[in-house]
Design a protein around this nucleic acid. Sequence first.
DNA 1: GCGATCAGCGGCACG
DNA 2: CGTGCCGTTGATCGC
Lengths: 250, 250
Amino acid sequence: MDFGEAAAVIRSALDAEQLCLVVGACIVRYEGRAASKLSEGDRLLVIKPDGTFLVHQGKGMTAINYQGPGAVVKAEATNEELVVTAERSKPMREVIEAHFKRIDFAQSFYMRDDSKLKLFGSERELAKLLAQDLHLIEKGLVPVQEESSLPKGAIDILARDALGHLVVIELKRRDAGLDAATQLARYVSELRKRKGEVVRGILCSPKITPNALKMLEEKGFEWFKLDYEIANPSAKIRGLQKKQKMMTEF
Amino acid sequence: MDFGEAAAVIRSALDAEQLCLVVGACIVRYEGRAASKLSEGDRLLVIKPDGTFLVHQGKGMTAINYQGPGAVVKAEATNEELVVTAERSKPMREVIEAHFKRIDFAQSFYMRDDSKLKLFGSERELAKLLAQDLHLIEKGLVPVQEESSLPKGAIDILARDALGHLVVIELKRRDAGLDAATQLARYVSELRKRKGEVVRGILCSPKITPNALKMLEEKGFEWFKLDYEIANPSAKIRGLQKKQKMMTEF
DNA sequence: GCGATCAGCGGCACG
DNA sequence: CGTGCCGTTGATCGC
């Protein structure tokens, strides 16, 4: 397939709001929030009707070069190459150029798709479940709605314990690291200052790194091992266990 | 194209370590770290030789469903559908299934590509530049190598000022938020405890959110507005300006 | 291998 | 819009 034909395919795809696929050897240049250069190699170019522009190599999950939705795509053919550009101004002016030196394939496809992904086991879903079963953490714990969203971020779950003390619960669907412990500390600290009362902090996650656990202990926070299961229609919390290094080790 | 032919194309692509593209109407199911269901619609399926499995809709940058490198891909055709599965066990057992009810296109491509992306303007590059021009921040500031990597993360740049005080410099290539301010605070606090001496904290970024700036001020840290430019072969720092709300406002 | 962080992060939800 | 933060985050670097 020659460059002129490929350019025509791309233009017609853009015009008809169709997905366009191009396979061939190309060089890619990008300049915008950063800048990059990719020397010649065989790649797949995906152009979507919304302006999305993806350059994929033969391996790895992520596109090696890309432009997000909202880009204006153009195709220009000469005798020596096909240049496909995508330009946008949204976060800032950004341009990507793919210079094809060889075209193996170029075709467009009409894709009708109104479906949205249904996802189960998100943190949001787990938080909802856990808020209804706070006794799994501790007897007498009740959820509170008030003030659960600070100007500095939203608290996953806010509750009061049997003594009436505020409890900030930070939930992580996967292993917690320093960032999670830090985030919890920030919320607790902010709430203490704001309310001027005793505030406890609890981190719930399937696992935790040693450093993060150490930080929790130093700050007097607690960690609960979260055991949950992802059934297909929804998620279920199997249990919560307080697992913390004791100060008194035998 | 019928399901049997498409299955044959996929199998031969896997065998020959080629990229394979499939376009058609499908349902997608995923179960692993989370679970998801996507009802029928037209999609592009990209299968890479390394096991990468990407399901793309007609819009948006990210794959709506996917499986990372290392997955084992299989294709099975019946009279009613083509089922393509990808299974892996790396972070945990994960399975994705695409059930094609209609095939518009299926083809494989040999893609030779040994090139690696050259990226300019990364944080790493900026840090290297800035470390050589610390006078842009303050006269008398000199870089220190010692202890720049704590057990809890690595400090971007560690320096000593004219008075001999340690200075932790946290660099952000883009707008800094609460997380950046928190991170700086963590490093400074750790270093103070570890060294038992005065430690200053400086955040350098093109922009900063009001909350993050407020947190810096509360903790007595400083913010420098970073002005840099991304030339194509490398990045250049144009300047650094101390920009902080003064306690004494007129 | 784990642990921490960066990413041209992207995407979403909330104010 | 910005601000914050989750993500089946992925990818990278250091230990």
